[in-house]
Structure formats: C-alpha cells, structure tokens
Write a protein that binds this DNA or RNA. Structure first.
Length: 429
RNA sequence: GCGGGUGUAGCUCAGUUGGUUAGAGCGCCAGAUUGUGAUUCUGGAGGUCGCGGGUUCGAGACCCGUCACUCGCCCCA
C-alpha cells in the first residue's frame, strides 16, 4: 500500500500498474516468442503512435459502441485538436495503411505490440492501461489468410504452453449481405419477445442486437435458444468461405468449437470471428480474439481493402504463465574485490568479462563475507576474488559457489577458466 | 456505469465482546567472524492499522464518506 503523503498522490493512477520483476520478465518472454513466430509467418513489425486523432477511433468503432461512448481517453491538445489514447490497435494500423499508401504492395502482413487505454472499471485481467500483441493481414480477401492468422495464434499459444488452458471458438458472421439479413431477422424475432428480454438486452436490441446472443442472463438465453441461427442466413459465397476456413483448420489439426452465438457488434466485421477462451481467469476469459474486417479500410476513407487480424492481452497471457517456466538470464559471475586497493583491477576484470559476453555482478561494499553473501543472493555461479596477495603474483582466486571449491587462476587465464558460463540460459528451478 | 467482498511492516498474515507504549513469520540491516557465502546464534531498523470525518472517557476494531484492490454484471484482450 502506498504511504499517505502530503502533496502529490503516490498511488499509481487507477487501473495502471508498474511492470517489473517476474511480470516484466514474463512480458518480455511472451513478446520475444510472439515476434519470432510472427516473423516466421512473414509478418513485419509496425509500431503506430499511442495517440491518434479521435476521429480515427470514433469513425471506425462507431459512436454507439461502448469503447467510443464511454471508455476512451480523449483530450484536446494545446493546438485544439481532439486526440485519443488508442483503445485498440487495428484502427491505428488501418490509418497507417491509408496514410502510407500501402495498397501498392498487398497483402500487408503486420505485427505490433504496446499499451492500450480504456476507461473501464478495473478487474483482474482488465485494466485502464493494458498491453496487447496484435497481428493483421491487409489486402487478402482469401480464406487462406484467415487460416494463417489462426495458425499463427495457435503456434503462439502452443509455444507458450497454453493450448491446454484455452479453447478456440469460431463463427462466421457472413458477408455484409448475409449479416444484415440475419440482423434484421434477429430484430424481428427479439422485438416480438421484448417482454421477456432483460434490461441489458433491451438496450442491445437498440444498439447492437447481435450482442443479445451472448448474454449471460438466463431469460435471454432461453430466448436465444429459439432465435434464428446465423448459419441459415449465409448466402452461398459466405457459406463457401467459412467452409474453406474450417477445412483449413481441420487440415492443420487445429481443434475448435463452432459457436453460433459468438459475434462482433461493430459494423465493419464480416465472415470469420474467433476467440481463444480460458476458464482460468474468471470473467475476463478471452485471451486472444479477432476476426475479419473487410469493410474497415473503406469506411475510414481508404480504398476497399480486406483485412483480418487478432489481438491478445499480455496481462491475460502472463496471468496464465507460471514465472517458474519463464527462462531467466544466465547466472552471473560475481566480482569480489578485497580492500580498496584492488577495486581498479576488479573493474577492469569485470569489463573484460562483460566484453566477452558474461553477465557480471560487481560488488561495491562490505567485507568479503558480505560480498560473498550478496554474490550468493545474486545466484552467481562463480566469485572472482581479487586480493592484494594474489594480485602480487598475477593471480586471482576463483571460487565456485555451487560446490565451494576455489582455485587460483592467472590473470590472463580468467576468460578461459570461465568460458563455460557464456550464454547459458537456464530454467528457474 | 451497477451490485458484493477486502484494505494492519517490503511480503504473507495474527490482533479476543472497543481498554496502556500494535504483534509473528519471511525479508532487510548489523554483530558473532576486520580474506571466504548458502546453516546457526544475537541485536536492530521499519506501521500516523488505505485516507478523511463521526460515536466514545478510550477506536486497528463501531458508523458515514472517500480511495484502491478484488468478485460478478456490463464491455472487452
């Protein structure tokens, strides 16, 4: 708990967190694996600004969406422009696509990561500043893109050892024509049963009827059971498209559950929608989610360009990964000078070792007992003890902190003596 | 935005129906050992009991407000 203070509040702003220690390590681990895999799939990194003109988001997400209507961090800058801290990645990437005239080189495959901001009520797995990794393919209307993007997600979750924790749910919203027909059918159906709908769903009926399908209210669920099914509204093209996606998943041996109630509210979505869901995070069980958004770029004022992608929540992924399974840095070599006269030499030796690629902990203070104690705490493999007596003979004492054995080593043999510790990555035990 | 729970040391938590200077374990610092760590022993630092107000002779305990976290709803990654 932060201590009470006069003056500025020392608490972090609600819903924000400092990332350090195990969490920082886990984030870095996820990011490294993610970047590596994304590159294997032929994606290039894109890093868009953390804030954009407010227009970028409210035009694309829709004025009535919750994100736009009550969750954005919007502000006016000193020039009077309305800016918004990005609540999601896709709109920024779509904007970058248009700004940079990238329609010359389709398809564009991107990946990115970074903080997002939403003014929400914080809970576990839901904060006001959170971090996402993101994958997009722009300019590919083929189902193969859907399959690849899903394969990328599965590869990531597999390499993070999380496939056992999640299930893939997938659905198709069909193309615009199918989707609108279905939407109308839903409105007709639910309007006829208004008296049985929950308060929340009555609102959804106005703003976002598809959302009623995944209501958690028992009364709603009973109604949804008998509601029209989206699969009955696919036109031939939509049906065929979805069959190809599913066939692709089958060919790759990817398990999935068809969930006809999995929907996207926003208007630019079409065809494939999917979520990787876990039961281990309570109400915030969606760990990675995405879909096809063929209408987005055009809606923003760009050339009609298909798109598909997904985003995953870093915090949610990290929550599922035990810190014990995250590789740690190689154990260091500790440098222990004895007495002030040896400090200059100690720094010199530390520098040599570091230049050679070792991770080196230099101790600054205390008698030898203290310094060794600290070396031990730093998990050092070896302590290079540098004392006047040995230096006079051109030697140092190197002590193995695992077995306690020590031996004198000539100054010019130190690197050779320690080379076995170079670039060792160990699992925390 | 709505409803429930929680808030005592760096961490995990005790704290009796309100009663003197608020405790433990772990961690941290120091000494036993001024050139040898992980064990042990001894000592020490660290809390306006989340914050503000109220009730009371007396509040960490009770009441109100507020902030933060947490669970569910909503929404979403």
């Amino acid at each position: 708990m932060a201590k009470a203070q006069k003056g500025p509040k020392l608490q972090p702003v609600r819903g924000t967190h400092d990332i350090m220690g195990d969490k920082a390590r886990t984030f870095q681990y996820i990011n490294k694996i993610f970047q590596d895999i994304a590159k294997r799939f032929g994606h290039e990194e894109i890093s868009t600004p953390i804030f954009e003109f407010t227009e970028v988001f409210n035009r694309t997400l829709g004025e009535t969406s919750d994100v736009v209507s009550k969750e954005m961090y919007s502000f006016e800058d000193r020039g009077g422009e309305s800016l918004t801290l990005r609540p999601e990645y896709t709109a920024g990437i779509a904007r970058a696509f248009i700004s940079n005239g990238l329609q010359q080189s389709l398809p564009c495959k991107f990946f990115g990561s970074g903080p997002m901001f939403r003014y929400e009520r914080p809970q576990k797995g839901r904060m006001r500043q959170f971090h996402q990794i993101d994958v997009e393919i722009l300019g590919a209307a083929e189902p193969q893109a859907d399959i690849e993007v899903l394969a990328l997600a599965v590869t990531l979750l597999t390499e993070l050892n999380l496939m056992a924790n999640v299930r893939l749910e997938i659905n198709s919203l069909g193309d615009q024509e199918s989707r609108h027909a279905y939407r109308d059918a839903l409105i007709t159906y639910f309007s006829a049963h208004k008296d049985k709908l929950s308060k929340d769903s009555l609102l959804r009926l106005e703003k976002n009827p598809l959302r009623i399908l995944d209501s958690k209210n028992d009364g709603d669920r009973a109604l949804v059971e008998k509601a029209p099914r989206i699969s009955d509204y696919y036109n031939d093209a939509s049906k065929h498209f979805f069959e190809e996606v599913i066939a692709g998943l089958d060919a790759l041996g990817i398990d999935y559950t068809l969930n006809e109630r999995l929907v996207r509210g926003l208007d630019y979505y079409s065809h494939t929608a999917f979520e990787f869901i876990t039961n281990d995070l309570g109400a915030q069980g969606t760990v990675l989610a995405g879909g096809r958004y063929d209408a987005l770029i055009e809606m923003m004022g760009g050339p009609a360009t298909a798109g598909i992608g997904w985003a995953a929540g870093m915090e949610r992924l990290a929550e599922l990964i035990s810190p014990d399974l995250v590789p740690v840095e190689a154990r260091p070599i500790a440098i222990v000078p004895v007495g002030v006269t040896c400090q200059a030499k100690a720094i010199e030796i530390a520098q040599q070792l570091r230049s050679a690629g070792h991770r080196v902990e230099m101790s600054y203070r205390g008698n030898m007992a203290k310094r060794l104690k600290r070396a031990n705490k730093a998990h050092a493999n070896e302590a290079v003890i540098i004392g006047e007596d040995e230096l006079a003979r051109g030697m140092v004492m190197i002590k193995n902190l695992n077995d306690g054995k020590q031996q004198e080593v000539a100054l010019d043999k130190i690197l050779n003596h320690l080379k076995m510790y170079l670039s060792l990555e160990v699992k925390k035990s």
